[in-house]
Simulated scan of single mutants.
Amino acid sequence: APIDILGLSNGARAGLTGFVAGIARKTVIDNVTINALLPGPFDTDRLRGNFAAVSKSSGKSIEEIRKERAASNPAGRFGTAEEFGAACAFLCSDKAGFITGQNILLDGGAFPGTL
C-alpha cells in the first residue's frame, strides 16, 4: 500500500509491479518465472534503527516501541529473515513452476485488503 511520505518510492514500486506482471507472462513459456515478494515488517537492522530513532524522539524505550509495533501487526510479531528466505527459496524451486507474475505478500496480515 502506498505510504504518504514515500511518494517517489510509491511510484517506482507500482511501476515495478506492472513490469513484473507483464514480463513474467512472456518468460514462463521458457520455464522462467518472475514474481515479487512484498515484505511487511521484518526484524531487520533498518527496523531496529527506526525504533532507536523513535525512542530518542519520544522518550519511550526501544523495547516498548518494539512491543507496540509488533502488537499492531495482526500476527503480533515481525517476520524473520528465515521466513523471507523460505518463501524466496520456494518460489525459486521447481515446485513453484506454475506461479508467475504474482505479488506475494509477506506481512503477517498487515495489508487490509485482498489480492
Rank of each mutant, 00 (worst) to 15 (best):
E64A: 10
G59Q: 09
A75R: 08
I34T: 07
A53D: 05
L16H: 02
T27F: 08
L91C: 09
N50P: 07
T44R: 14
A70M: 14
L106R: 13
A70R: 14
N50G: 07
E82Q: 05
R77M: 02
I29C: 08
V54S: 01
G59T: 03
D94E: 12
S9H: 09
L47A: 15
R77S: 01
G22A: 15
I23M: 10
G40I: 10
G109Y: 03
K56Y: 02
N103Q: 01
G7R: 10
L106C: 12
F98Q: 10
A12E: 14
I3R: 08
I62D: 01
I62S: 02
F98V: 08
T80C: 11
G97F: 13
N35L: 07
G101I: 11
G113W: 01
P41V: 12
G49Q: 13
T80Y: 11
I104G: 03
I34W: 09
D43L: 13
A52K: 02
V28H: 08
A87I: 08
K60G: 03
F51A: 09
R46T: 14
I29P: 06
R77P: 04
L115M: 10
A1E: 01
A21F: 15
A110V: 07
N73I: 10
G79L: 00
A1C: 02
G15F: 07
L38F: 09
A14T: 15
E82Y: 05
T114P: 11
G85S: 09
L115C: 09
I29V: 13
N35A: 04
T100C: 02
Q102E: 15
R69H: 02
L106E: 14
R48L: 14
F98K: 10
L91P: 12
K60D: 04
G79V: 00
V32Y: 03
A36N: 06
A53N: 04
D107S: 06
F51E: 11
F111K: 08
